[in-house]
């Protein structure tokens, strides 16, 4: 018990030390680096996965691809993939980003596909029967109704990428993983723990932000708490 309390005390001391909050290797710089890698990977993954998922969901063709890709990519060992990519491409932003993109695609693809596919067929039939062309059916009806699941996929992807972006430090690119790896090598456990706490805190903060965004973006007609209010028989 004494050891644990001692560790927590030193963790607090670590956070209280102003030297850890400034300079090129201070916490703010590392947080920004971490966010940069996350945003880049999630953004590119979304550019790939959302149109692909929407197309497959809309046409109903290639659903097996979603299942195969989602399961296959999820099963890849992330650190092994990164090392392989670094060996192929050398150290740099590209292999790290690629490894994170591979991680972010499955939840985004599955969320978008399921969201579009699950829109009530009667609603889609009505949209088409009223004279909407295929692209309009997708853009004006299927995607807005799929938004809760698409954003759910985005949240899951972001969460995974934030926690996994730790490996950027493994190939000397910085990010919050630096505290974890350096802490481990130098047996500086408070620093290592501080890194872990920062990563978890960042993930939690971004999750809250995305939940807020989701509440703003999704139509009130699709939000159970809004719909329940003022219902008539």
């Amino acid at each position: 018990m004494n050891g644990l309390f001692g560790l927590l005390e030193r963790l607090v001391d670590w956070f209280a030390d102003p030297k850890h909050w400034s300079g090129f290797d201070g916490v703010p710089v590392r947080v920004l680096e971490h966010l940069e890698y996350t945003a880049l990977a999630v953004f590119i993954a979304a550019l790939i996965a959302i149109p692909l998922g929407a197309y497959i969901g809309h046409t109903g063709r290639g659903g097996f691809l979603v299942v195969g890709l989602a399961n296959g990519l999820r099963a890849l060992p992330e650190l092994g993939l990164l090392i392989l990519l670094v060996l192929l491409m050398g150290i740099g932003l590209l292999p790290v980003t690629l490894a994170l993109i591979v991680l972010a695609i499955p939840p985004l693809l599955a969320g978008t596909y399921a969201g579009v596919r699950n829109v009530d067929r009667a609603v889609v039939d009505a949209a088409r029967g009223m004279g909407m062309r295929e692209l309009a059916v997708l853009r004006k009806v299927e995607l807005p109704n799929a938004l809760p699941l698409i954003l759910g996929g985005l949240r899951a992807a972001t969460l995974q990428v934030i926690s996994t972006a730790t490996i950027a430090a493994y190939v000397s690119l910085g990010g919050l993983g630096v505290f974890v790896f350096v802490g481990q090598y130098t047996r500086d456990f408070p620093q290592m723990l501080a890194g872990a706490v920062l990563i978890a805190g960042l993930a939690g903060a971004i999750e809250l932000l995305l939940m807020f965004v989701q509440r703003r973006l999704v139509s009130p007609g699709l939000q159970p708490n809004v719909v329940r209010r003022g219902t008539t028989g």
Partner: peptide, 20 residues
């Protein structure tokens, strides 16, 4: 699509757009 714009269409469960 142009043909359907000129024909009203009502279906069994109404098929209203839930987000609108």
């Amino acid at each position: 699509a142009r043909l359907r714009l000129g024909i009203g269409y009502v279906i069994q469960h109404a098929g209203l757009f839930p987000h609108r």
